[in-house]
Each structure stands twice: as C-alpha cells, then as structure tokens.
C-alpha cells in the first residue's frame, strides 16, 4: 500500500546523490561509488514500474536482472583499470590523470 510515487522519488533522489558523488569525488574509486548508487536507483525505478503494472510482461524484471549483472561486470573492469592506472602513475586522483587537457 505504499504509494508508487514514493518509490520513484526515492529512486530519483538516490540517483541525484550518486550523480553528486560522481561529479565531486577526487578519487576514481570515489566516482565509482557514486556510479553504483546511480545504477541502484535505476534498478529501483525499473522494479517499481514493473511492480506497479500487471507484471505480465517480464521485461521489467528481466532488465533489472541484467542491470545487476552489468553493474557487477562494470565494477570489476573499472577497478581493474583503476588498479592498472594506479600502478603506472602511482595515483588515483582523477585531476592528476588529465590527459584530456589541451
């Protein structure tokens, strides 16, 4: 009996918090943390929508499962990269890894 809107709002808020983390963190791992929150928020959203409907179409749930898998895979790879970068440059501070600068 929880209002559907509350779920969505929670998801939205969480998403924004995660976004804040991504934009603000110095460390690459810190960014990854924020990213995980964003993914979670998306997941909640999907499931809330799926649950609010008839649940006949399984696509909502299926997609949510896939998101879980993808998030895990992404974290693994991302951390591998960060560790690799750490090895060569001895830093995980994003600002110092600024090869995109002109």
């Amino acid at each position: 009996m929880i209002p559907f809107a509350w779920y969505l709002l929670i998801a939205a808020a969480l998403f924004c918090i995660g976004l804040f983390g991504v934009l603000t963190r110095r460390s690459a791992i810190g960014i990854l943390l924020g990213l995980e929150f964003m993914l979670n928020a998306v997941n909640i959203n999907f499931l809330a929508f799926w649950r609010a409907g008839t649940m006949q179409a399984m696509s909502g749930a299926v997609f949510s499962v896939i998101i879980f898998a993808v998030a895990a895979a992404e974290v693994a790879v991302g951390l591998a990269i960060i560790i690799s970068v750490y090895r060569s440059r001895r830093t995980v501070v994003v600002a110092e890894i600024s090869d995109l600068k002109e």
């Binding site: 963190r25 994003v94 600024s98 995109l100 600068k101």
Partner: peptide, 17 residues
C-alpha cells in the same frame, strides 16, 4: 575559456548536466 578545457572529466560532466 581555455580553462574550461581542464581535461577534468567531472567538470565536463557538470557542464553537460
């Protein structure tokens, strides 16, 4: 404006957001 191109991805993101 040159300072915009900081090479800092987070800043780019902020802007795009």
């Amino acid at each position: 404006i040159r300072h915009v191109q900081t090479g800092q991805v987070q800043q780019y993101m902020v802007m795009s957001i």
